[in-house]
Amino acid sequence: MEVERSESLEARRERLDAQLNARRKVEPDANANREASKGYALAVKLSSEFIAGVVVGVLLGYLFDRFLGTSPWGLIVFLLLGFCAGVLNVLRSTGAVAQPGSGRAGRSGTRDEDDGK
């Protein structure tokens, strides 16, 4: 009787392992693909925002130098400004820095609440 129990227990354990392995193979693949695509989309978005800031800075610097004849100082200054703008855009996109204009409405120097006078 003890041998029959261990065999039936072993058979049930093998069936359970097979079912668990089948579920593990199906679920992580769908979630992993979804997470990978979200990560890829975020990486493309952040890199494009950074590159756009630098490219705009370089173009403005080049045009500034071309029309005013201050070569290479305009390009250097605007390249640095574009770099800073790109970093700021990335930080805003990730939520590390607040968006402009998202502060309190009562910043004009007047108090919104009653002073008690």
Rank of each mutant, 00 (worst) to 15 (best):
G106Y: 13
A22E: 14
P28H: 08
M1R: 10
E2T: 07
V3W: 01
R12I: 00
A22N: 15
K117Y: 05
T94W: 03
G106N: 14
L63G: 13
A98I: 05
F78E: 12
G109P: 10
G109I: 00
K117C: 09
L20A: 10
A98T: 14
S93K: 00
A36D: 07
D29H: 03
L63P: 11
S47Y: 14
A32R: 15
L79D: 07
A105C: 11
Q99H: 10
F83E: 15
R13G: 00
G39K: 03
G53K: 00
I76L: 13
R92L: 01
E113Y: 06
R13N: 05
S108R: 13
A22Q: 14
G61T: 13
L75S: 04
L88S: 08
F78L: 07
A52N: 15
V58D: 06
V58C: 04
S8D: 09
S108W: 13
G86N: 02
I51A: 11
K45P: 09
L46I: 12
S8K: 12
P72L: 07
S37L: 02
F67M: 07
G103A: 02
L42K: 11
L59M: 09
E4L: 02
F64S: 09
G103C: 00
D29I: 13
D29C: 05
K117W: 13
V56S: 10
G103L: 03
T94V: 06
V3Q: 04
G116H: 03
L80E: 06
R34G: 11
R12C: 08
A105T: 12
M1D: 14
F67Y: 13
D115I: 00
S71Q: 12
R5C: 04
P28K: 00
I76T: 14
F78M: 14
T94N: 09
G53W: 00
R107N: 13
E14N: 05
L60E: 06
R13M: 02
V54M: 08
N89V: 01
R24I: 09
I51F: 04
R12G: 11
R13I: 03
K45R: 11
M1T: 06
